[in-house]
């Protein structure tokens, strides 16, 4: 398996393997490009996708703003965004940087990275919407790496109105 071999490489060299930087880029472009139907495919099943805040993490408080622990829950989020929930149309632009490997283990690696999201509304106005970090656990599935865990820790505890699209 290419993925497993690549991940092993990370254990030796503590650099971010190319398939994982590609995973990060594909994830951001899927959301920023409006293709949230592709979003569940970046995860294993079961999985952990969680949005929380720096305040909650530092105070060891377990609540989440958004939490999915199965592919079914990811699909349900997409369906709700597309069909049930109402919000003003908007786009994200993700800026992901400072990706680093924090742990390597048998068949997985953990990574930490920074993100910044600029949100543009349908009326053309634009503002920084969120910044914080991703805490990820990546595993190989077939030839490609996927997120077993993607925990989004927002540096801010105040959310500008709502989070409809995944971060």
């Amino acid at each position: 398996m290419t993925g497993a071999a690549t991940i092993q490489l990370a254990a030796d060299h503590a650099h971010v393997p190319a398939p994982i930087t590609a995973l990060f880029a594909d994830y951001a472009h899927a959301i920023d490009g409006g293709r949230i139907e592709d979003w569940p495919d970046f995860f294993t099943d079961p999985c952990l996708y969680k949005i929380t805040t720096r305040e909650n993490v530092e105070r060891r408080l377990p609540a989440a703003i958004l939490l999915c622990d199965s592919r079914g829950m990811l699909l349900d989020r997409v369906a709700s965004v597309r069909r049930a929930n109402i919000f003003e149309p908007h786009r994200y632009r993700h800026f992901v940087s400072a990706i680093r490997v924090t742990e390597t283990g048998p068949g997985y690696i953990r990574l930490q990275s920074n993100y910044l999201i600029v949100r543009t509304m349908a009326n053309g106005t634009m503002a920084v919407f969120s910044t914080g970090e991703y805490l990820d656990k990546v595993v190989p599935v077939g030839d490609s790496p996927r997120f077993a865990e993607r925990v989004v820790v927002c540096d801010h505890s105040v959310i500008n109105n709502l989070i409809a699209l995944p971060i």
């Binding site: 949005i51 703003i65 939490l67 109105n161 709502l162 409809a164």
Partner: peptide, 27 residues
């Protein structure tokens, strides 16, 4: 019980399946 309450947290707050529209409609 704690885990179920946290998972049900998807219903409320800024990403709440139920409450997401409440802030927008005021605006």
């Amino acid at each position: 019980k704690t885990a179920i309450r946290i998972k049900q947290g998807n219903l409320i707050g800024p990403s709440g399946y139920i409450s997401m529209e409440d802030g927008m409609v005021g605006a």
